[in-house]
Simulated assay, not measured.
Amino acid sequence: MKTTLLLFITAITLSNIYAQEDSSFGFTKGDFIISGTMSYSYQNSDSFRDNIDGNMYQFGTKGHNFSIIPEIGYFVSTHFMTGLKFGYISSKTESFDNDLYYYTSKGKGYSTSIFGRYYFTPQKRVSLFIELEAGYIKNTIDSDRIFQINDLTASTNKIENYSVTAAPGINIFINKDLSLTSRIGRIGYSNIKDNFSNSQGHTGTNKRDSIDASISLNNFYFGLLYRI
């Protein structure tokens, strides 16, 4: 928490320093921007131990998650930008247990959102901003669960997520058109609907609302932003 607070104070100090300088860096009314994020994670784990019969017990998991979310924006005024985000997400997980249990899960989906962003010192090299975003995510996950030999259960989850979030951030120009940009935490509300069905004829719907807020280094990462 102390590290995060120091990081945020440093960002404010840098913004104030550059705000006092006459710089050709920064945004102005009529600018277009292209930006976005891309992430990939991979997991491969195996564990071994003896069971009560003295035989070796093995459990393993493999999987990956991938997402790419490009965004475009337009400065309707010197301080305010509005824009759109479109994204693709995918995931795959495989788990097994001594060849008696085998589980696979594959997910694909997309995301879309509109956002507005206010820059406090838009025509300077370093500027803090605040962003408000309304988004929608749809994801379909198909799963197969095999227990022992012939016991197969297939299921499908169709998940929809409506959300509204607010996030502070910082933008730092590398040159006159290219900059680093990052959000520093977030506060948001989500409404999630999960429709479930399986090969045994069972169906169900799960609805839930959630509110989350965080300011930590886990939410602090830099992406690239290009001004057209």
Score class of each variant (00 low, 15 high):
16 N>Y: 04
16 N>W: 12
17 I>S: 05
19 A>P: 02
20 Q>I: 07
24 S>G: 15
28 T>L: 10
28 T>M: 08
28 T>F: 08
30 G>N: 07
30 G>I: 00
31 D>Q: 06
32 F>A: 09
33 I>N: 05
33 I>L: 05
33 I>S: 07
38 M>V: 15
38 M>A: 15
41 S>P: 08
41 S>Y: 08
43 Q>N: 13
45 S>A: 12
46 D>G: 08
46 D>K: 09
47 S>R: 15
47 S>C: 12
49 R>F: 07
49 R>Y: 12
49 R>A: 10
49 R>M: 10
49 R>V: 08
49 R>D: 13
50 D>L: 13
50 D>Y: 10
51 N>R: 02
52 I>H: 02
52 I>P: 00
53 D>F: 06
53 D>Q: 02
54 G>I: 01
54 G>K: 03
55 N>I: 10
55 N>Y: 02
56 M>Y: 08
57 Y>L: 01
58 Q>E: 15
58 Q>L: 12
58 Q>C: 09
58 Q>S: 12
59 F>I: 15
59 F>E: 15
61 T>G: 10
62 K>G: 13
63 G>I: 00
65 N>Q: 09
65 N>L: 08
68 I>L: 07
68 I>W: 00
68 I>P: 04
70 P>D: 02
70 P>M: 00
70 P>V: 04
74 Y>K: 02
75 F>Q: 07
77 S>N: 05
77 S>H: 01
79 H>N: 12
80 F>L: 09
80 F>I: 06
81 M>W: 07
81 M>D: 11
84 L>I: 09
84 L>C: 09
85 K>V: 00
87 G>H: 09
88 Y>C: 03
89 I>N: 11
89 I>H: 07
89 I>R: 08
90 S>W: 00
93 T>K: 06
97 D>W: 06
99 D>I: 05
99 D>S: 14
100 L>V: 14
100 L>E: 11
101 Y>M: 10
102 Y>K: 14
103 Y>N: 14
104 T>P: 02
106 K>L: 14
107 G>D: 11
107 G>L: 08
107 G>S: 01
108 K>A: 09
109 G>M: 06
109 G>F: 02
110 Y>F: 10
110 Y>N: 05
110 Y>T: 11
110 Y>G: 04
111 S>M: 03
111 S>F: 01
112 T>A: 03
117 R>A: 00
